[in-house]
């Protein structure tokens, strides 16, 4: 794709065995090959990523959102919590770009401040889900036997819990009838319930990936060389099983922001005065016909954030597959 000398027609397996590069041994080598410095998969992936506009665009957006989450003051001097009812549902104008909500609070400021809760909850839950589910999946798939049977049954139990019901149970148990309004405590609980209820999907994904890869000839070859379990898992299994996980992970970011909103809407998740896009969207839905802008702006931020993560995931997945470079 990016390297003409290595262009092969492998991507169309119908042409029997592609006659590849080799014939003129030196002709048309990329310059880097002549320089001859050994590189690894990650180095190559990074080199490849740097050439992709998709990567730069999505990374820039994600960076902006992260800064927004960390230092909202940089973006707005408005007040996200207090408003004046006299400005209730005032349309966007030059001095309030996104208008005012029902309670007369500045929507722009709220969207900026909302990034923190939304992004922190989604990103940490996704990372947690991937780590726990991925590890369980590798253990179950690689060890097999009774370990696999046990872990799979445990996963099935969690898999069987309906998400909303499970989350309500967890949140009300650990935060009985909304006694605590501490922002971080509620976020922690929301993250925990998302992770606890979502890891089985990732585990199943990883497990089937590992099962398929485990029998590959190159794993046998590595074992024959005397490679230990750690090396086989980290060097051979993981890089070849990661792709579906990355894709699923980026999709999860979006659905977790939505899930957080659902919980807020039900009154068991984040609550005022904490601001999140989910809360804003659920508040706006009652006024969708009269004041659509109340829904539009938080939804726009949500969509851009989710798309950025999806695009980043796609770019990373492609970069990690040498055949797609």
């Amino acid at each position: 794709m990016s390297d003409p000398s290595t262009a092969s027609i492998v991507s169309t397996p119908r042409i029997e065995e592609p006659a590849q590069t080799g014939a003129p041994a030196n002709a048309g080598l990329p310059e880097s090959d002549r320089r001859n410095k050994p590189r690894g998969l990650l180095g190559d992936a990074w080199r490849d990523l740097r050439r992709k506009p998709l990567f730069w665009i999505s990374a820039t957006f994600i960076l902006i959102f992260l800064v927004m989450a960390a230092f909202p003051q940089l973006f707005t001097s408005g007040d996200a919590v207090n408003g004046a009812l006299s400005r209730s549902r005032v349309e966007p104008s030059a001095d309030a770009w996104f208008g005012y909500d029902v309670q007369g609070r500045d929507v722009y400021a709220r969207v900026i401040y909302g990034a923190r809760a939304s992004i922190v909850v989604a990103v940490i839950s996704v990372i947690g889900t991937l780590l726990i589910g991925g590890t369980m999946g590798i253990i179950a798939g690689y060890r097999g036997g009774w370990v696999d049977a046990l872990l799979s049954r445990i996963a099935d139990v969690f898999f069987g819990l309906p998400f909303v019901l499970g989350a309500i149970v967890i949140l009300t148990t650990f935060n009985g009838s909304g006694t605590s309004n501490s922002e971080w405590k509620i976020m922690g609980l929301v993250i925990m319930s998302l992770v606890v209820l979502s890891w089985p999907v990732v585990m199943r994904l990883m497990r089937s990936s590992v099962l398929a890869t485990k029998e590959a000839d190159y794993i046998v070859a590595a074992r024959a060389l005397g490679a230990g379990t750690g090396r086989i898992v980290l060097k051979h299994l993981l890089p070849n099983c990661l792709a579906p996980l990355l894709v699923y992970g980026t999709i999860m970011v979006g659905s977790f922001i939505g899930a957080e909103a659902t919980l807020s809407f039900l009154g068991v998740g984040l609550k005022s005065p904490v601001v999140s896009w989910g809360i804003m969207i659920s508040e706006a839905q009652n006024y969708i016909r009269v004041s659509p802008f109340l829904l539009f702006f938080p939804a726009l931020f949500l969509v851009v954030a989710v798309l950025s993560f999806v695009m980043l995931g796609e770019a990373v997945r492609e970069a990690l597959d040498p055949k797609l470079r």
Binding site: M1, A7, S8, I9, S11, T12, R14, I15, P18
Partner: peptide, 11 residues
């Protein structure tokens, strides 16, 4: 010929 992403292969 096979027209692929990487070019045209005259099969």
């Amino acid at each position: 010929e096979f027209r692929t992403r990487d070019g045209v292969a005259k099969v």
